[in-house]
Amino acid sequence: MRRVWLMLAVLAATPLWASTSDVYPFDSAAEQERFNNLITELRCPKCQNQNIADSNSPISKDMRDEVYRMMQDGATNEEVTNALVSRFGEFVRYKPRLEQRTWLLWATPVLAVLAGLLVVAGIVLRSRRAAAGSPGLSAEEKARAERILGKDSGSH
């Protein structure tokens, strides 16, 4: 029983030392959240598929420190991001800025939905027109179909 309690105590203690908030103390929860949002939207230039919140490479730590320092100096989110982009390039943005090079990237979802709607509309229109335009089989065709399907097979 004692062991079980010990294990539970260990489990309960884990989140305390796993949180990063004691490394970067903030006055308010709102600032803390702003910091967390910023570091999840910035990409580590070294590890490439991690944000600087998750990455433990030295460069990510330097970047987190810089974000923290700038926030303590009263910088806005945009100022922080721009400061890092001016050093490391557009690459560090997980949300690329809308510009000549990236408009297609941003527009692709909209374009894809529009293209899909066009295709659906085309199919619907065509099937409707087909339904209205051809009134089924002619009498002659009907007779032939019946013959093939063997309605009068008993006569043979």
Partner: peptide, 12 residues
């Protein structure tokens, strides 16, 4: 402390 390195955008 890697100050100039950081301003240069050195990542490795």
């Amino acid at each position: 402390r890697g100050e100039l390195g950081f301003d240069l955008g050195v990542y490795g």
